[in-house]
């Protein structure tokens, strides 16, 4: 039974991916890409990787999908969506042959992989020292915290790169078009009803992430969704990008993270956690990170400033 389900799921994933890559219509391709992301999240769930499933559904399918639809709209407005002429047949055949060879080689490598125990035991044996029950978060914020620190800096750098594409006239201004909705309409009601629930879910996801699936990135995405909902419902416009509180919010997470790592020097280990207080330091870092990730994701989706400050 479960084997048949595995096979069907893999077939669905491949089918959705084919339509996302080769679909005739760009908008349709984006929609199939989102479907593909959700199916992938299901695959991660079946593999028992619930943290990855949450990240794939929220970031891989959700935020990426919204970004692509935003780019599609931007390209349509700028007239950059003309139909492209199909590639000549021999080029298509060559591409099929090349992709087939690549896939075959990778499949061969997969088949010939030697089995191993991996690092599961090493993580489980040591995660008690961080007082974390969730092994994935023990790796993310403990054993490989350096990767996570650099990852948050990559997000910040991406936002700086996006802002660098602002036209000089509107530098520091407000991104996106202003949204006006009927005050008694569906959108405005959602904008009032859902944010408190979203906020609660985000706080819960960070808190529970220490011992169960969840964590700063998943929670940050939920908060970013709340932010976008409030903007779309016209209740509050996007902030000016040159506002100091906003910029402090963006760097709060990486700064607290880096600060905790450097403060470890006082406790004897640079980039280490003090013995016995690991969990409390990790929670402080996670809440600061959640705030910064939420702001960064929401502003990445909003794009560069469009209106003068």
């Amino acid at each position: 039974m479960s084997h048949a389900f595995d096979l069907a799921l893999c077939a669905l994933i491949l089918g959705a991916a084919v339509l996302a890559v080769t679909g005739r219509n760009v908008f349709g391709a984006i929609v199939f890409y989102v479907v593909y992301g959700v199916l992938l999240a299901l695959a991660w769930l079946i593999l028992g990787a619930v943290d990855v499933a949450l990240a794939e559904a929220a970031i891989g399918a959700g935020v990426t999908g919204v970004l692509l639809i935003g780019a599609w709209q931007g390209l349509a407005d700028a007239g950059g969506l003309e139909d492209e002429a199909p590639r000549p047949v021999f080029l298509r055949l060559a591409a099929v042959a090349g992709a087939g060879a690549l896939g075959g080689l990778i499949a061969l490598a997969v088949i010939s992989l030697p089995g191993g125990d991996g690092l599961t035991l090493a993580v489980v044996d040591n995660q008690d020292r961080l007082e974390l029950g969730n092994p994935v978060n023990a790796v993310l914020l403990g054993f490989r915290a350096y990767d996570t620190l650099l990852e948050t800096l990559v997000l910040t750098a991406a936002l700086a790169a996006v802002w660098s594409l602002t036209r000089t006239r509107v530098w520091g201004g407000v991104p996106g078009p202003g949204h006006v909705t009927r005050p008694d309409g569906v959108m405005a009601s959602f904008g009032r009803l859902l944010p408190p629930a979203g906020l609660l879910v985000a706080v819960y996801l960070v808190w529970v992430g220490a011992d169960a699936p969840g964590g700063a990135f998943q929670a940050g995405t939920v908060l970013a969704a709340v932010w976008i909902l409030i903007v779309l419902s016209g209740l509050q416009d996007e902030p000016r990008l040159n506002s100091l509180p906003l910029r402090l919010m963006i760097i709060a997470g990486p700064a607290v993270f880096l600060g905790a790592g450097l403060a470890g020097a006082a406790a004897g280990a640079v980039m280490g956690y003090p013995d016995g207080h690991a969990k409390s330091v990790i929670l402080v870092i996670e809440y600061a990170l959640t705030l910064s990730i939420a702001a960064t994701l929401a502003l990445l989706i909003a794009g560069p400033a469009r209106r003068a400050p």
Binding site: G74, G118, L155
Partner: peptide, 29 residues
């Protein structure tokens, strides 16, 4: 289940891929 170390690396990878997608999309527009 899946080894927790690859899981953490994959979550990091998903976020980095998003960062690149966001910049590339803005650049294209």
């Amino acid at each position: 289940g899946v080894d927790p170390v690859p899981q953490a690396l994959i979550i990091t990878g998903i976020v980095v891929a998003l960062a690149l997608t966001a910049f590339a999309a803005t650049l294209a527009v």
